[in-house]
Deep mutational scan, measured.
Amino acid sequence: MEVRTIKVFTTVDNINLHTQVVDMSMTYGQQFGPTYLDGADVTKIKPHNSHEGKTFYVLPNDDTLRVEAFEYYHTTDPSFLGRYMSALNHTKKWKYPQVNGLTSIKWADNNCYLATALLTLQQIELKFNPPALQDAYYRARAGEAANFCALILAYCNKTVGELGDVRETMSYLFQHANLDSCKRVLNVVCKTCGQQQTTLKGVEAVMYMGTLSYEQFKKGVQIPCTCGKQATKYLVQQESPFVMMSAPPAQYELKHGTFTCASEYTGNYQCGHYKHITSKETLYCIDGALLTKSSEYKGPITDVFYKENSYTTTIK
């Protein structure tokens, strides 16, 4: 009895394709271990004539594949690729409408935090270190965002349907971005203890939790000093293409032309909904596939993004 075979390709990165001759009487799992086709788990399936010449994702289970996976995804987590594939199996079914010149995501599976993050990423200057993220990001900007969303979920250790947080998501993504040249110098002034300067680099240099107003941050924000008295913390120097200011959701007025974009969060910790506000020729609110415009805006804002380049204080 002759062994019926077909020729397929296996890959971990969709760049390096490895030619395989597979036995049609055995499952993919018996031949390769966990195997995925377009995100779908085909591990328990036997090869079919229609699979001839198709590319299958496999887990990096030998040295060659491990090197290829690390170079593309910059992670050695053995569960990463499987999590990416199972997320992709959902995100490829989502709709990605162009809204006001940006790629958004039609609401499904509690994905409003991903839509808000995706919209924000198209408006701030950011370059990702893992080629996987950078490639998928370019495709997302062009309207094909399924891979990018699935990668975000995998890097953030999230599953489809789980509630997510924009600030946490951005923080994970910033860790995989090139923020080497970003720098922030802060000064804390206390009447009792004097003053202390701190220099922050990388992710810490672009994120701040405690106030939404970048102007206020430049002037000074009140913080408790270690001595128990009130101290003032203010920005001395900022070198970065953008800054992200966050605070627990509270009524906040966004003035046209003073910011790049913002995240609105309605609801409580267990259950809520994100919308995205962007400042173009007027203010726009993007909620999944829905767009509304207004000249002014007041609502429960939790993150505001500002364009920056270089700032030095005039406070002496």
Rank of each mutant, 00 (worst) to 15 (best):
T55Q: 08
T159P: 14
K201R: 11
R4C: 09
K127L: 07
G39T: 06
T258K: 02
S86K: 14
G288H: 01
E52P: 04
Y208S: 10
A250K: 15
E215V: 05
R66S: 07
G33T: 01
K46G: 14
V42C: 14
N111K: 01
K218S: 04
L151F: 01
G220R: 03
T302R: 06
E264N: 02
Y311P: 08
P224K: 14
G39A: 14
A177M: 07
V8N: 02
N111P: 00
H51N: 04
L126E: 11
C193A: 01
V304Y: 04
L173H: 02
T103D: 05
L118E: 04
T314E: 12
D62T: 12
T198C: 09
F80P: 00
S294H: 15
Q122A: 02
K218R: 07
Q30W: 07
H273N: 02
Y208Q: 07
F174K: 01
H48Y: 12
E296K: 14
Y311L: 08
Q270N: 11
M245L: 09
G272A: 07
L254R: 02
A205P: 04
I223G: 09
F32H: 08
A247L: 05
Y72T: 09
G39C: 07
M245W: 03
L283T: 11
T5P: 09
W94H: 01
I301R: 06
D41C: 08
D303L: 04
K191M: 13
V189P: 03
D135I: 07
I286H: 08
S181M: 08
P47R: 02
N16I: 14
S25A: 11
V203S: 12
E215Q: 06
G272F: 11
F305I: 11
Y138K: 12
V58W: 06
Y274S: 03
D41P: 07
H74F: 03
L133V: 05
L235H: 02
T169E: 00
F56I: 02
V304R: 04
Y214K: 05
M24S: 08
R167Q: 07
K255P: 08
H256V: 09
R66C: 12
F80R: 01
N129A: 08
H90I: 11
C182K: 09
A154W: 00
Q270W: 08
M207P: 10
A289D: 13
G288S: 04
P248Q: 14
Q98H: 06
L65R: 05
E162F: 02
I286V: 06
H51K: 01
Q134A: 09
F128C: 03
T103P: 01
A145G: 14
F80D: 04
H51F: 05
A136F: 03
S294A: 13
V189A: 14
E308Y: 07
N147M: 09
G288L: 01
Q237W: 10
Y137I: 06
V160K: 00
D77R: 03
D303M: 09
Y274G: 04
T192D: 09
K93V: 03
I152M: 13
C156T: 13
Y138S: 10
T103E: 03
A154R: 02
K93L: 12
A117M: 12
Y28R: 01
R184P: 04
N309H: 13
S295Y: 14
G288I: 00
E52T: 12
S263Y: 08
K255R: 10
Q123M: 03
P248Y: 00
I105Q: 03
K229T: 10
F259Y: 03
S213K: 02
T91I: 04
N61S: 14
Q134L: 06
Q175H: 12
Y214E: 05
L173T: 02
S294E: 12
Y274R: 06
Y73K: 01
T91M: 02
L133W: 00
T116S: 02
Q222A: 11
T91G: 00
T292W: 12
G288Y: 04
I277A: 04
N268C: 09
V8K: 00
K93Q: 08
V188P: 02
L65Y: 01
K218V: 07
W94M: 01
S79I: 08
T27C: 14
K229P: 03
P97S: 09
K54A: 11
C261L: 06
G143T: 03
E168F: 09
L121T: 07
D109W: 00
S171H: 11
T55Y: 04
E144T: 06
K191I: 03
Y234N: 05
F128H: 01
R141D: 00
A140D: 07
W94K: 01
H256T: 10
P249H: 04
L254F: 04
Q197W: 09
F128L: 04
Y137T: 04
G101A: 02
T314F: 13
A117K: 05
L163D: 11
V58E: 00
K54R: 15
T27G: 05
L133M: 11
A145Y: 00
G202M: 04
G220A: 03
S181V: 08
E281V: 01
V189L: 11
Q251E: 15
T11R: 00
E215P: 02
K229H: 15
T116P: 01
E308H: 07
E239V: 10
T116L: 03
T19V: 12
F9P: 05
A146Y: 02
Y36Q: 06
T159W: 10
T75A: 09
E68T: 08
T302M: 04
V8A: 10
I105Y: 02
G202T: 01
M85R: 11
N16R: 10
I15H: 15
I105D: 15
S79P: 00
P97L: 10
E253R: 10
Y155A: 00
G210M: 10
F56T: 00
Y311N: 10
Y96P: 00
E68Q: 10
V99N: 02
Y138N: 09
I105W: 00
G33P: 01
L65C: 12
T55P: 07
G210P: 05
A142T: 15
K93W: 07
T258N: 13
K93D: 10
Q196Y: 10
E2M: 14
H176A: 05
A250M: 10
E296P: 08
F9S: 07
A40P: 04
Q196N: 15
Q238R: 05
T313F: 10
D165H: 07
K293G: 10
T91K: 06
V3T: 13
I124A: 03
G299R: 06
D109G: 03
L179T: 02
Y113S: 15
G272Q: 13
M244P: 08
T10C: 12
T198Y: 14
G82T: 10
K7N: 09
Y155Q: 03
C156N: 07
T292P: 04
F174N: 01
I124H: 05
Q195F: 13
F56E: 06
M207W: 02
Y311V: 08
I301N: 07
V22A: 15
S181Y: 09
K229R: 10
Y36T: 03
L290Y: 07
P131I: 00
P131N: 01
Y252I: 14
A40N: 14
A115K: 10
T226W: 12
K218P: 04
Q31M: 13
Q175V: 04
F305H: 04
Y73Q: 00
T312H: 14
Y137R: 02
Y155K: 00
C156Q: 11
T10H: 07
N147P: 10
L37V: 07
E281C: 13
R83S: 07
L290V: 04
K298G: 08
Q30I: 14
T91V: 08
T312N: 14
P130N: 11
T75W: 00
S181L: 10
F9Q: 15
D23C: 12
P60Y: 03
N147K: 12
Y284R: 07
G164D: 01
V12L: 06
E71A: 11
Y297N: 03
T120V: 11
H276S: 05
F9T: 09
I124E: 03
F305W: 12
A205L: 03
I152H: 03
N309C: 14
D287G: 04
V22R: 01
T211D: 06
Q31G: 01
Q251R: 10
C193T: 03
G210V: 03
G143Y: 00
N157L: 00
I223K: 07
P47A: 08
Q251C: 13
Y96N: 01
R184K: 07
D13F: 00
I286R: 07
Q238C: 01
D38R: 11
N309R: 13
L126Y: 01
F217R: 04
I286L: 07
A108W: 02
W107A: 15
Y208D: 12
C285K: 06
A150R: 01
L212N: 01
C182T: 05
C182E: 01
Y137Q: 03
C190R: 04
